[in-house]
Design a protein around this nucleic acid. Structure first.
Length: 483
RNA sequence: CGGGACGUAGCGCAGUCCGGUAGCGCACUGCAAUGGGGUUGCAGGGGUCGCGGGUUCAAAUCCCGCCGUCCCGACCA
């Protein structure tokens, strides 16, 4: 096991807390290769739960999985001007194979648009082939200078959806549908509230027409871009000659979308719910939703408690609850409690002789509150209810925190600056639409426009003026320092 | 790539100034007791002191070179 000391409190050093939590909960470890990360079983289990939920959602909306290769001919990347400009600086390039210099270097995919649309060009002939809705689960490599476990690593795991449509409207509808799907996943599964909206041009995906994103606010009041969905327009279709014959018999370029979420979400989960004890994993994503700690003295008691635990486990499993019995010997119950709390298990059952005699278990919730004896009668349905409630409570608490750390209608430029420099979260303010102003604000405050928010997130009264220049505002935008 | 710090057991460190048997805490292994919130006791295992060279009877320690890591700045899911 890892060391037994408490974590650095979040208030003391948030970043140290984050790193220590990951080590202590054994979610990941540093690899021998700089910037890379080993995802350990505890961390990978969360990712697997995420994958399972998202994969179901993608399939329910008509997508199929496929797999495209890791290596991309370097020339492919160059075919779309903005794309190559955006990604070339951070690619890893393979120059040798089998001991020989390659005729053409191979890029290790930083994202797969180019190779996928090269293939789509072969597969799509007619409007009858559209829409083409494909997703892939893959690893990608981006040669980052500054890395953080889960949040930004040189190699990371993700899914990337790539679709082709006959019309711009269809592509836009797909882009927005996925944005909503992501939001739903983040709220309902991760219990992580997000703002949705459009990115400004400077934050747009390299090669996209428009980029939309989900933005979450972490406990240190920094924003996390949690997922993006791009309307690629016909940029890649033109670069890769992805054309189809329309119903009217005309040759047209397809309209593409691409969208992705990554293992970064695990980092978002940690920084949304974690506390000074460790991880708090929302029950819907937890590897184990309930851990049973048997309590005993003599050997005879141990056997009886384990047997009772098995029965409880079976009942919970029947109700669809994921359960683990911690029957390890030589570790005191208290030590087990701390360990499972660090790992974020939502519910703990303590099961000892007194409970068995009384037909109860002692329930402890990871989110706090007093321990509570539960009757074994109907324990399955009861825990299903508890899972739903904790899921709801976590989302609620995170939403309240975000709103508490949001600032609408700063009166003056100085108030805007003060809020950001004082460690504030999301600031809603008017913007004149000038990219130079956006850059200047970033320069001075380190904050960027996270998103031009969707209608439901906008302030009831739209700001009339740009917070920086006083010129007429083209939109209300959300500013924050970001990961 | 620029500025700063640091490399000694799995982790955290002391020892380096002033050369002389490689240590401490935690973790780990075994046994026993303990067991409803981080358990004690006893006994153990584990080190090319980042790498290479030099000085010296003798180098973790002094000198030279290299490598690596972390933090701060320019780029980013």
């Amino acid at each position: 096991m890892a060391d037994n000391k408490a974590l650095t409190p979040r208030a003391t050093d948030f970043s140290a807390w984050y790193n220590e939590l990951i080590m202590k909960a054994q979610l990941a470890d540093y690899s021998p290769v700089r910037g890379c990360m080993v995802i350990r079983p505890n961390g990978y289990a969360i990712w697997e739960q995420m994958q399972a939920a998202l994969d179901r959602m993608f399939k329910d909306t008509g997508h199929q999985n496929a797999y495209f290769p890791l290596f991309i001919p370097q020339s492919f990347l160059a075919r779309e001007a903005e794309h190559v400009e955006g990604f070339a600086p951070e690619t890893a390039v393979v120059t040798h194979g089998g001991g020989k210099l390659l005729d053409e270097p191979l890029v290790v995919r930083p994202t797969s648009e180019t190779i996928i649309y090269a293939m789509y060009a072969k597969w799509i002939q007619s409007y009858r082939d559209l829409p083409l809705l494909i997703n892939q689960w893959a690893n990608v490599v981006r040669w980052e200078l500054r890395t953080r476990l889960f949040l930004r690593t040189t190699e990371f795991l993700w899914q990337e959806g790539h679709t082709a449509h006959a019309t711009e409207a269809e592509a836009e509808a797909e882009t927005l549908m996925i944005l909503g799907l992501y939001r739903n996943f983040m709220e309902q599964w991760m219990a992580m509230p997000v703002l949705t909206g459009r990115k400004t041009n400077s934050e747009r995906f390299a090669g996209a027409l428009r980029t939309y994103s989900c933005e979450a606010l972490m406990q240190d009041n920094k924003a996390l871009q949690a997922g993006t969905s791009h309307n690629l327009g016909q940029n890649f279709a033109r670069a890769f000659e992805v054309r189809y014959q329309s119903q009217e018999g005309k040759e047209e370029y397809v309209w593409n979308t691409s969208w992705g979420v990554s293992t970064r979400l695990v980092g978002g989960l940690i920084m949304t719910h974690g506390d000074d004890t460790g991880l708090i994993c929302p029950p819907r994503l937890a590897q184990y939703q309930v851990v049973i700690v048997p309590i005993y003295k003599a050997d005879a008691e141990r056997a009886a408690m384990l047997e009772a635990a098995d029965k409880v486990k079976a009942e919970l499993q029947t109700a669809g609850i994921r359960v683990h019995i911690d029957g390890r010997e030589g570790i005191k119950p208290g030590a087990k409690y701390y360990e499972w709390e660090t790992r974020g298990v939502p519910f703990r059952f303590e099961l000892g002789p007194r409970d068995v005699a009384g037909g109860t278990v002692m329930l402890a919730r990871r989110t706090g509150g007093a321990k509570e004896p539960l009757s074994l009668e109907g324990i399955g349905p009861r825990m299903v209810q508890e899972v739903g409630r904790m899921q709801h409570d976590l989302l609620n608490a995170a939403t309240l925190r975000r709103e508490h750390n949001s600032f609408r209608h700063p009166e003056t430029k100085q108030a805007f600056i003060d809020y950001l420099e004082g460690g504030g979260g999301f600031v809603y303010a008017g913007w004149c639409g000038d990219p130079a102003v956006e850059a200047e604000i970033k320069e001075q405050t380190k904050a960027t426009i996270r998103v031009i928010p969707d209608a439901e997130f906008r302030s009831s009264e739209a700001p009339a003026k740009c917070i920086w220049t006083g010129r007429p505002a083209v939109a209300e935008v959300v500013w924050a320092r970001a990961y």
